[in-house]
Design a protein around this nucleic acid. Structure first.
Lengths: 226, 226
DNA sequence: TTAATAGTGTCTATCAGACAGTATTTC
DNA sequence: GAAATACTGTCTGATAGACACTATTAA
């Protein structure tokens, strides 16, 4: 039909989680060329053959499940990178997503030796394959910026959580401390929290209220990419 | 090397201009299948052969020049759309950009009969090929949102312009009226205007000051996509 | 002087940050 | 009651919108 060189197409998610009070990203040790022996983002090819991926979102969901073992509660498109020399095999186009997965939903035993969750402070010790260092910088900018006006960080938390939990997650993502009163006023205006009426009694002080995200807020947010 | 079906890759810019006090988009009448006889966004294939496009931005620049005859002063990536059925020829991936071009820089005579600048209010009268109607909706959201916190609309104006010109451009993009005092205070805080010391004397009232965009502001802004 | 727009000043409502105060629980 | 954190109230400075005021030019 059209008879010229087609670029390679991959989908490469930057998968974030929170663990040990650190923001971490999943990296994979490559076992084949190019960049054998280097870490890279977990990626996958678009399966365009009949009866396989129907949309690019199908590809992302499949890759996320293959690499983490779970269905990611959230992902969104970040940017598409393409050039003749970002992959030594030739012209390549990488459609990059960011995804957030709560650590507690992951099964650590499922991860093989070639998979590694690296906290973002330690990333400068890694020389990643392809242009993945700069892609991760881009992803960090996006997630930190988006935290300021969205409910993104709830995707790191379990179903029920306290406002203090929520504030800590925001602080870990941003890397800065926040004022409690101002934070709660802002969360209140965003109007996405629902009081469960329950409290967390596993504390030796006044038990905090447990909240969850309103069903409408989640659906509204998810519809960004469906 | 890798032996499976590769998707079709195209780059499809949504090219905006301002003309006759209307925000308009460039559409092309297709003269071949699929969607022959329908209007679509102007698009192009990535030329991945040796010595052609080196990066995806090269592809965009080339397509923009081919379709408008000029070098676009601004473009940025919008989103990438991919699925098995958005193009009847099979799995396809479209990397979509938005671009802003000032009307006065265009040469109307260069446009052939198959090219048409359509104002966005009239778009609902067109049933476009592919998924281009929904792509344009996406692009409109982006440009209207970005106007609120950026200098984007200056790319519709000539080098020197008045603050009233600038406000009118913002109003046309947003589709709403703005308060003069509030607008000027906001522009002042963004700190990207430089007083040329000149005035526009082609008026029958107090001649307004002419401003231009600070070189530093332009470079800073442009570096978003370089 | 009039007409028209340029350009500025003021008032108000809103909101985020700083910080202090009150409330509630366990031990 | 002490300790600890939950949760709320108040002050302040910054800002957007509404609106009116002064300035400047051509005719």
């Amino acid at each position: 039909m059209n008879d010229f060189v087609k670029p390679i197409n991959t989908v490469d998610p930057v998968i974030f989680t929170l663990h040990d009070n650190k923001l971490k990203i999943l990296l994979i040790l490559r076992d084949k060329e190019p960049f054998i022996g280097k870490y890279t983002l977990p990626g996958g090819w678009v399966h365009a053959n009949e009866g396989q991926d129907l949309t690019i979102e199908d590809t992302v969901k499949r890759v996320l499940k293959e690499k983490t073992g779970v269905d990611a509660p959230y992902f969104e498109q970040l940017n598409t990178f393409g050039s003749h020399n970002r992959d030594p095999r030739g012209w390549s186009i990488s459609i990059v997503y960011i995804s957030l997965i709560p650590w507690h939903s992951l099964d650590e035993n499922l991860f093989k030796d070639n998979a590694k969750w690296v906290d973002i402070e330690s990333l400068n010790q890694y020389e990643l394959g392809f242009d993945h260092n700069s892609i991760i910088d881009f992803a960090l900018q996006r997630i930190r910026n988006k935290v300021n006006y969205s409910i993104l960080p709830v995707y790191f938390l379990p179903e029920k959580f306290t406002q203090t939990d929520l504030q800590k997650v925001y602080e870990l993502v941003l890397g800065t401390k926040l004022d409690k009163s101002a934070f709660r006023k802002k969360i209140a205006t965003l109007n996405f929290l629902e009081d469960t009426g329950e409290r967390d009694f596993n504390v030796s002080f006044r038990p905090p209220l447990l909240f969850k995200v309103k069903e409408t807020a989640l659906q509204c947010f998810r519809s960004n990419f469906i």
